[in-house]
Simulated scan of single mutants.
Amino acid sequence: MRIAIVTAISAFGSDRDTGPLCEALAAIGIATDHVAWDDPTVSWGRFDAALLRSPWNYSEQRPAFIGWTQRVARATRLLNPAHVVAWNTDKRYLAELGASGLAVVESHFIAPEQVIDALPDWDEFVVKPSVGAGSKGAARFRRSDHEAALVHARQLQAQGAHVLVQPYLADVDHVGETALVYFDGRFSHAVRKAALLGDDGSRRCSQSAPGVISPCEADAGQRGLAEAVLREAGQLLALQRPLAYARVDLLPSPSGPQLLELELTEPSVFLGSGDGAAARFAEAIEAHLQAG
Score class of each variant (00 low, 15 high):
R192G: 03
I110H: 05
D219L: 06
G292S: 15
A161N: 08
R203L: 12
D17Q: 01
Q70Y: 04
L264G: 03
L164M: 15
A158G: 15
V6H: 01
Y168C: 09
L51P: 00
R231W: 02
I66S: 11
L119T: 04
F12P: 03
L180A: 04
E217T: 14
A26I: 09
D121L: 09
V84H: 02
M1T: 12
A24F: 04
A209T: 05
G132A: 05
A238K: 13
L52E: 11
K136T: 10
S214W: 09
V229C: 04
Y182P: 06
R154T: 06
G29L: 07
I30W: 00
D219R: 10
H146W: 08
D117N: 13
V115Q: 08
G176E: 05
T89Q: 06
G292L: 13
F125I: 03
A27T: 05
L260R: 04
K136G: 07
A220D: 08
P120E: 13
W122G: 06
E263D: 07
S43P: 06
F109Q: 08
W68S: 15
D39G: 14
R77D: 06
T265H: 09
N57H: 14
A11M: 13
G198N: 04
E147M: 03
L251S: 05
A75G: 05
A190G: 06
R77G: 03
V212Q: 10
N80F: 01
K128G: 01
W37E: 05
Q70L: 14
A11N: 09
F65C: 07
S202K: 11
A287N: 09
R71M: 10
A8D: 15
R223P: 01
P81C: 11
A228S: 10
F187S: 09
G137I: 02
L196Q: 07
P210D: 05
V6I: 11
R140C: 12
H146Y: 07
A195S: 13
F65V: 07
L78N: 03
K193V: 07
V151I: 04
G67N: 08
F281K: 00
L79Y: 03
A244Y: 00
D173T: 14
E227A: 06
P20Y: 00
V248T: 12
L264N: 00
Y168S: 08
V248Q: 07
R92M: 06
E177H: 00
P129A: 00
G234Q: 15
G224C: 14
E232Q: 12
D48P: 12
R74Y: 00
G176D: 02
R92S: 01
G221D: 13
R62Y: 08
K128S: 04
T89L: 14
I66D: 08
E106N: 12
L119G: 05
Q159I: 03
V269K: 03
L225I: 02
N88P: 01
L52Y: 12
E217D: 14
Y168A: 13
V212I: 15
D38E: 11
W37I: 04
A287V: 06
A31G: 15
A73R: 07
I28E: 01
P210M: 08
E96C: 12
E177A: 02
R46Y: 15
L264S: 04
D275Q: 08
A75V: 07
R53D: 10
H174T: 15
V85D: 10
Q290Y: 06
P215F: 08
L239T: 06
S202N: 13
L259I: 01
P242L: 14
E232W: 02
S273T: 02
H152V: 07
E147F: 09
D121K: 14
A209G: 09
E113Y: 04
L164I: 01
G132I: 01
